[in-house]
Design a protein around this nucleic acid. Sequence first.
DNA 1: GTTCTTCTGTAGCGACCGCTAAAGAATGAA
DNA 2: TTCATTCTTTAGCGGTCGCTACAGAAGAAC
Lengths: 206, 206
Amino acid sequence: MTTRHRGRPRSFDRDTALEKALRAFWEHGYETTSIADLTRAMGIAAPSLYAAFGDKKTLFEEVVEVYVRRYGGFIGRALAEEPTARSAVGRVLREAAVEYTEPGRPPGCLVINAAVNAAPASAEVTEALRGMREENVHALTSRIRAGVEAGELPEETDAAALARFVGAVLQGMSQQARDGAGREELEAVAATAMRAWPGEGPENTL
Amino acid sequence: MTTRHRGRPRSFDRDTALEKALRAFWEHGYETTSIADLTRAMGIAAPSLYAAFGDKKTLFEEVVEVYVRRYGGFIGRALAEEPTARSAVGRVLREAAVEYTEPGRPPGCLVINAAVNAAPASAEVTEALRGMREENVHALTSRIRAGVEAGELPEETDAAALARFVGAVLQGMSQQARDGAGREELEAVAATAMRAWPGEGPENTL
DNA sequence: GTTCTTCTGTAGCGACCGCTAAAGAATGAA
DNA sequence: TTCATTCTTTAGCGGTCGCTACAGAAGAAC
């Protein structure tokens, strides 16, 4: 049952405006996107923005939630659905190459790139994104460790180190996407990275 | 013969002030470092800064020059001095792990991290740093290609793709250094990356 | 209708941005 | 000593930042 509303109804669609804000933040980053940029992109005036979304930081937090749900799910899906650690990590890297260069979207990953050069005033946002990156590495570590325990990987495999390597490659791929690298180039980076997989011979492919 | 000087001599050491500016830009990035931050760090007032270094962009360009000469030389040295492409790239990655986490310095690489989220107004600076990253990948490509021609690497090796992979790993390492990763962690990433080297077996070490 | 509530538009707050005009201070040249 | 030159200091320019007070507009409740 929808809650009935007393006063004047808002004249814009909240989800549409949020999506516009998402694109703006994704394209230009947290600090670089000003309230004026946001109101222009969202098609509303500043007081409407503040009434509907709170302040800039709160809006960004909501944007990140939507981003993770809509565009960041591929990592979790790959880790959950693939039968082996190797195929899971390979798919993460392969799909990242596609996701980071999808036409019609800003290149790269918002979580990786939106708050790199943040001022001390934005420390909370920076820290939140850093925490999410760390969570991703943790998820990779767990999946790899499970693979080791399942006997897919040598027992002496350092799961955390391998996961950190994969995280670094993802960050590098996102940066290169923002620098203009195309899908094929990133797929080549992903394929090369997979050659570092334990037990991998030189003739293996992704 | 030193050029004789007419008016009042400047009251600060230009090189020292430049070094302070270098540290500030390295730590906080190009846009995030304000003129007020710079004058505080350099110990001079704004008009002295503008008289000695030009505007903010010009100062940053000079900072980048000094940075590359003083802190970025390890890449060129490794590529020039090492006997094989493999040892050269391995040394680049290994030394990056040390350079990016050197105590007493801001973590990571200024060229990689100082202008990631730049506004359109700083497009020139962003583009300049991007060009320098590209040059580094070119240098890596050339060295790897020379290794292929010398018979160190399989003839079908894609030198450009391998170089781009190394560039991505360096960018990821720099980001992770800024996220708080330590030297040992980055060295593990570097060692893992080298397992992707063509012809590498699973038991190889860096 | 009238009232109550909520949203919208205008307009502007104080703080900071990069940058500079203007005047005083410190030197070499004459 | 006097002048010309260059630096330093103070103060503030126009512009943008994130954010909000305030008044009017647009609905639901009565």
